[in-house]
Write a protein that binds this DNA or RNA. Structure first.
Lengths: 104, 104
DNA sequence: GGCAAGTGCTACAAAATACGTAGCAAAAAT
DNA sequence: ATTTTTGCTACGTATTTTGTAGCACTTGCC
């Protein structure tokens, strides 16, 4: 049997990370976090910021992100990042810079 | 009209970032990058690493990531990260740490 | 009060995407 | 030469996303 590539991974990806990457690997998930970066937005404003994403999908993403504890809904205000959400944003900020320089 | 929330965003998300977030917001895209973090993997090994993702989807992701210049295919070796891909990985590594600590 | 506008959110059919399995042609290993 | 392994395609099914319409509720205003 060939060596090197085909051998079983010693360090396999943890379930937690796989789960996280699965959540973030859904459409608009990262974008929603990004759009809430500087200010709270209500449902319709958030939808507009995300290129008019379907309200059903927005609703689904908001639920998931809320379950993850990344965003919270403030009755008179709209949606905004929690402390954990802001921390995540700070982490993905360099990713934005990367995108700016590597994609036209 | 209410003020603050509903006003039009001063700084709107750039097209490049929107594009990048759209690419990464596809299933398995980030995961594939992650699995190639330390070593090259061939098609089948990469598929196995990604929980047995469908070959059609894997093929699609590989094409897209190759078009983005993040991975490259080496004939006898398999797929591996390009310099840009490794740079992206270095950026998303903290995100992995974050996921480990914030999700069970 | 009453009316208009804005709100979060749901419904639903159509399109796109992902899944799961089977299998093929070419290369590699034996 | 035969077996194994490889990258990859095909295809029917399930899931997700899209796009549009609209409902029930609150908010601002006269």
């Amino acid at each position: 049997m060939a060596k090197g590539i085909q051998t079983i991974r010693e360090t396999q990806t943890s379930a937690g990370l796989a789960q996280a990457l699965d959540h973030f690997g859904r459409r608009w998930a990262l974008r929603v976090i990004w759009e809430l970066r500087s200010e709270a937005l209500n449902f319709r404003a958030l939808r507009a910021a995300c290129d008019g994403i379907s309200p059903a999908v927005m609703q689904a993403r908001l639920h998931q992100l809320r379950d993850l504890g990344l965003i919270e809904q403030i009755p008179g205000l709209g949606y905004r990042l929690t402390a954990a959400g802001e921390q995540l944003f700070r982490i993905m900020a360099p990713l934005a810079e990367w995108a700016e320089s590597h994609l036209e």
